[in-house]
Write a protein that binds this DNA or RNA. Structure first.
Length: 787
RNA sequence: GGGCGAAUAGCUCAGUUGGUUAGAGCGCCUGCCUUACACGCAGGAAGUCGGGGGUUCGAGUCCCUCUUCGCCCACCA
């Protein structure tokens, strides 16, 4: 239905198809993007050491090669000076197997210890060949022995040194991580090492070094080793030809957008991470040696040897010489199509589509921080480069689901929770509500895979509650027309009606505040207030739940029970208010409880709804009024109910027993309120309530309401005077203690003169109220305890 | 090695520019199958706000420091 409605408002996209499939539309967009970058000189082919996964057999970008803390060993190896066998230098390495491809050793030019060796040679152990000692800033005098071996083909940094010093670059490890001479090695791999896996070769090399007396020492060493993000295999630096995107020019507007507030990242602290990455951005290796993916749209002509040609259409012959051409064998990094997502889904490269004009830029991009660089930052760059505009104005980064030991849920650890299991057990809404309610801004969500029921109890209980409220409403509302609230004259509303309507308004206001001001297309800097506001989804979930459960169900629904059974005009008022409030509650909840709210809303009797309207497309609720007369007065009735229930519990009065209770108002207004609400209070507490000026004689339980009105429950025989006396005395003691603190604060000149006036006035009012209450309590205690 | 964040009830977390007696859910205790709901209702217990110091009339909130976790970045072999 929603898809139909989207189509009805002009969307022409095929919404049933994932943007990630290799659809012709996406292929066209990917090729267009590649060619545009190529023509702009931002894509180039480079020969260098890149990250390579020997299991996936493909190159990886910097982001795909994840550094992981690894405990390894630091091997100290002795290299004898060629022209002075009495002298040797020691070199530290974590990867002795790459020694076979060493072409030099480097020392820092400022390092006095080795100055005389620069330009001379040392003997590479095992191979017994001479390699030069060179001076290069790359060598850090502070680390290890200050001498570093240079292996240009198997280390990205060594490669740079190799380029600077025009060194040969023999390759001794192949694409599968096996020891083998691949190019220019000239007999560097000994027979006994050939064909060994790099790990095995390391063991063997160490043994050989030790046997030759060249292993000086071996110590534990913790360092970051890059692993393939897909299969977790240790990444092998590998010398190869790859395609790269020059990122620096692309990063300029993307950096500016976050700096000037065009794009806001929530939580804010990620902005720093984003900015740091952008400022230090490195070229993006986009070619992959995989079978599945968008093939790189570049053709080569072997006949005339012209430069590689990028093309929007497949080439069958060389445009220069007419000779045969061949297409590049590699495919593109999957993220190369992903970064086009905000534009490709809307029809790009055609920007005249209805979708594009209607929906670009979009509003909020929701994602986990783990793909901030892979995807989000690149989408921003693509938006600016290809369309000239930001793709969204807000980036919302949510937490990651973890187990009780705070580990990411993963298949290999077996600590995951299958969402589909949760859906079948408790429903999709229970899952959704639980996760949103449990997700503070910037905080991970902890769920217990060993106790799925308890983990999702919040959502399950709440959605069930919602369902049951509707069951009550629908079975008690009857078939007569329900009036829209606007047609009910406000003087017909009861205090309970006014109270729930005011609570609804307050809830709407608080939810709006939690979600924050909508600011599409903002271009100036966000204010501090706005920066802090918004996107607090857990607060939104909690506030709506508290309203629906704690106020609507626990109080208002209970107050309507009598009225709905009656047949007077008041019944229609109650029905109108109940339907109105529940309708608004469903609208507020719909984004986090979509299925249950939609199903219930469809059954609500409402005169202004056409049969095919969806809750999903109705308007977000607005506050009705600034104030609801008499709403506040209902609090006195609620207090009376709570007070009575507490007394019942304290004295263990049988739940089924009806008791008598007397309310003694503290003012004329309180008298009016309590007299009008006494029937309701009585029904909610199984009590016969009377409002009187005088306390009844005999032993009784007492409660003092906040306005000074009293609640007295005569309990002749059942009452334990001593206990009642102790209870009130305790209450009095507490109050006196707090009052003493308060008065001390008010006597403090520092407080009175420096605190803002409204704070001081608030405290004074409080002092008056407490003093009044204290007097009444003292009276009671005197009466009861006879002291 | 840099940078950032967190520490509040048994557990998971709120607490918005410092200002009532610090809150919620789950769990726990007591009593209830009250005709919407036991996935429920009513009542209740439970916190030296990680330790120490400071600023302030006033600190869970701001500053310093220590401890313990976590995240991001980084070519130190």
């Amino acid at each position: 239905q929603i898809i139909d409605q989207l189509k009805a408002i002009g969307s022409s996209a095929d919404w049933s198809r994932s943007a990630y499939t290799l659809s012709p539309e996406l292929s066209r967009a990917v090729r267009e993007a590649f060619v545009r970058l190529f023509e702009a000189g931002l894509i180039y082919r480079g020969h260098r050491v890149i990250h390579w996964c020997p299991r996936c057999l493909t190159s990886l970008s910097d982001e795909e090669a994840e550094p992981q803390e690894t405990v390894g060993k630091l091997y100290h190896v002795r290299y004898v000076v060629a022209d002075d066998p009495s002298r040797a230098i020691t070199i530290a390495t974590t990867r002795p197997e790459t020694m076979l491809a060493d072409v030099a050793v480097a020392v820092n030019p400022s390092d006095d210890r080795y100055g005389d060796l620069v330009g001379r040679s040392v003997i590479l152990p095992i191979l017994n060949i001479e390699i030069p000692v060179i001076a290069d800033e790359y060598a850090d005098p502070e680390f290890g022995t200050g001498v570093v071996k240079i292996t240009p083909a198997h280390d990205a940094n060594d490669f740079e040194v190799g380029v600077r010093h025009k060194l040969p670059m023999p390759v001794v490890i192949d694409e599968r991580g096996t020891m083998r001479e691949v190019s220019d090695a000239q007999g560097r791999v000994p027979q006994e090492l050939a064909g060994l896996d790099r790990e095995d070769a390391r063991e063997r090399m160490v043994a050989m070094l030790r046997a030759g007396g060249n292993l000086v020492k071996l110590e534990p060493h913790t360092h970051a080793v890059r692993h393939c993000y897909r299969c977790n295999t240790v990444v092998e630096p590998r010398l190869s030809d790859q395609w790269f995107v020059r990122m620096k020019p692309l990063s300029v507007p993307a950096l500016q957008a976050v700096r000037d507030g065009t794009i806001r990242i929530v939580p804010e602290r990620w902005e720093g991470v984003y900015i740091h990455w952008m400022e230090n951005i490195r070229d993006w290796n986009i070619s992959r040696q995989l079978w599945w993916g968008h093939r790189i749209p570049v053709w080569y002509c072997d006949a005339c040897g012209s430069d590689p040609m990028a093309s929007r259409t497949d080439l069958s012959a060389c445009p220069t010489c007419g000779g045969p051409v061949r297409q590049d064998e590699d495919v593109l990094d999957t993220w190369f199509s992903s970064w086009l997502w905000p534009i490709s889904t809307l029809g790009w490269p055609d920007t005249n589509t209805k979708d594009f004009k209607a929906f670009y830029p979009t509003d909020v991009l929701v994602s986990g921080p783990d793909i901030l660089f892979f995807w989000i930052a690149r989408m921003v760059m693509a938006g600016y480069f290809f369309v000239g505009k930001h793709p969204f104005h807000t980036i919302y980064l949510h937490g990651i689901v973890r187990d009780t030991e705070h580990r990411k849920m993963s298949k290999s650890l077996g600590n995951g929770i299958d969402p589909l299991d949760v859906v079948s057990l408790y429903g999709a809404d229970a899952l959704r509500y639980t996760v949103i309610a449990g997700m503070g801004l910037g905080v991970d969500i902890i769920l217990d895979p060993n106790n799925v029921e308890q983990s999702f109890a919040v959502g399950r209980n709440f959605t069930t509650k919602l369902w049951n409220i509707a069951r009550f409403l629908l079975s008690n509302i009857g078939d007569d027309d329900v009036q829209p609230l606007e047609r009910i004259p406000s003087e017909r509303l009861t205090r309970a009606d006014a109270w729930i309507l005011s609570r609804l308004d307050a809830t709407i206001a608080e939810v709006d505040a939690a979600l924050g001001p909508p600011r599409p297309g903002a271009t100036e800097r966000w204010t501090e207030t706005e920066r802090r506001a918004g996107m607090r989804l857990n607060e939104y979930a909690e506030r709506t739940r508290a309203f629906v459960w704690g106020e609507l169900a626990d109080w208002y629904v209970e107050t309507t029970k009598g009225r709905l059974q009656s047949s007077g005009e008041d019944r229609d008022v109650a029905r109108a208010v109940l339907v109105h409030v529940f309708d608004r509650a469903l609208r507020l909840l719909h984004p986090i409880v979509p299925f249950v709210t939609e199903a219930l809303w469809q059954r609500l009797p409402q005169s202004d709804r056409t049969p095919d309207t969806l809750l999903a497309t109705t308007a977000w609720p607005l506050r009705a009024r600034l104030a609801w007369p008499r709403a506040e007065e209902f609090e006195l009735a609620r207090e009376a109910v709570s007070g009575l229930r507490q007394i019942r519990a304290d004295y263990g009065i049988a739940p089924g027993a009806t008791i008598a209770a007397v309310l003694i108002p503290s003012s004329a207004n309180a008298r009016a309120v309590l007299a009008e609400e006494q029937a309701l209070v009585g029904r909610l507490t199984r009590a016969d309530i009377s409002v009187s000026g005088d306390p009844p004689p005999g032993a009784a339980a007492h409660a003092l309401l906040s306005d000074g009105s009293e609640l007295i429950v005569p309990l002749e025989g059942a009452i334990d005077v001593e206990k009642e006396c102790a209870k009130l005395t305790n209450e009095l003691t507490q109050l006196e203690k707090q009052l003493a603190f308060l008065l001390k604060r008010l006597e403090n000149d520092g407080f009175v003169s420096r605190a803002p006036a409204h704070v001081v006035e608030g405290e004074r009012q409080k002092a008056r109220d407490w003093t009044e209450r204290r007097e009444r309590l003292r009276e009671k205690v005197k009466q009861l305890c006879g002291t």
